[in-house]
């Protein structure tokens, strides 16, 4: 009764959209890497692998943006996750007024990322925002300056904005994981006289660990590609101190109009992410057999 074609009928609209608007452009975009675009004449010339040697041998900015990407991703992820977990545990334990507080705490996730960027730009600006004065008062800064214009500190601006935005994501994921643990397990342990902390350590953690690890690893890919907040807040500056690979691609393609080289950087980033993805797949397989 089930024909071979039937599943394909359900999938056809999705595949059509993805083929025409994602895969075809992706392949076209990859071919750009072999061309040198001339902005003035509007022509492109086939240059083979020339631009690939450039990225490997003489592009110090690529290396720098790669290191910045690592810092941006790991710092954002670390704080989003630890604070998100803390909040999920508190919300899961329940308290008076939770119905009111929970939606408020989830608001940042619904705020468009360009607005988040703009909002925090104002917060860090000594003309419009309170943060420089607060930082001075608690001794982080010597004078109320804008950290976004200080190459040593600038990256923390977008990171704080990203933390603000990302906590609810982890809270929601972890809350869902916590709630999916059947209550009878805890009831059984309370009969056996196990304390709350022990129950957390020996029941909660092992049960939600797989979800947590996978979510973290997938989220890392997403954050490393997440350029909007940085583009709005610092546009990669000052002195490229907040340039991550994704903003570097944006800059190369749409400020310098060098589509060819932008595509080369994209391919480099994509390859690195693919390697990461393969490792991730391995970990995932291991975990399903382990837990």
């Amino acid at each position: 009764m089930i024909s071979i074609r039937e599943p394909w009928l359900y999938l056809a609209p999705t595949l059509l959209f993805i083929f025409l608007l994602v895969l075809v452009p992706l392949i076209t975009g990859i071919t750009y890497a072999f061309y040198d675009f001339d902005l003035i004449s509007g022509t492109k010339e086939f240059v083979g692998l020339d631009q690939f040697t450039r990225i490997l041998s003489e592009d110090a900015l690529f290396t720098k943006s790669l290191l910045n990407t690592l810092f941006w991703t790991s710092a954002s992820l670390f704080f989003q996750f630890t604070l998100g977990l803390l909040l999920a545990l508190i919300l899961n334990s329940g308290f008076r007024g939770i119905q009111l507080v929970q939606p408020v705490l989830f608001i940042p996730w619904a705020v468009p990322s360009f607005l988040i960027g703009l909002m925090w730009v104002w917060m860090f600006n000594p003309v419009t925002g309170p943060l420089p004065y607060i930082f001075e008062a608690i001794g982080i800064l010597n004078e109320p300056e804008n950290i976004l214009s200080d190459p040593d500190l600038a990256m923390w601006g977008p990171i704080v904005a990203n933390i603000w935005f990302g906590i609810p994501f982890f809270t929601i994921m972890l809350l869902a994981a916590l709630r999916s643990i059947p209550n009878d397990i805890y009831e059984a342990t309370s009969i056996d006289g196990i304390s709350g902390l022990q129950a957390f350590r020996h029941i909660t953690v092992p049960l939600i660990a797989p979800t947590i690890i996978i979510t973290l690893l997938i989220r890392a890919i997403w954050i490393s590609n997440f350029a909007e907040i940085i583009i709005v807040m610092t546009n990669g500056g000052p002195a490229n101190s907040t340039q991550i690979v994704a903003t570097y691609i944006y800059d190369t393609a749409y400020q310098k109009m060098d589509f060819g080289y932008a595509s080369v950087i994209s391919i480099a980033l994509l390859s690195l992410l693919m390697i990461y993805g393969l490792i991730l797949g391995r970990i995932r397989q291991k975990m399903t057999t382990y837990f």
Partner: peptide, 29 residues
């Protein structure tokens, strides 16, 4: 069905590359 894994993989890959990479080609489409 045959091809299910391939579809899942394609769907996953679309989540991995930087969007800025394909703005220009999409513009052409």
């Amino acid at each position: 069905f045959k091809g299910r894994t391939a579809i899942m993989t394609i769907l996953l890959i679309t989540q991995m590359f930087p969007i800025v990479m394909i703005i220009a080609p999409i513009y052409n489409v």
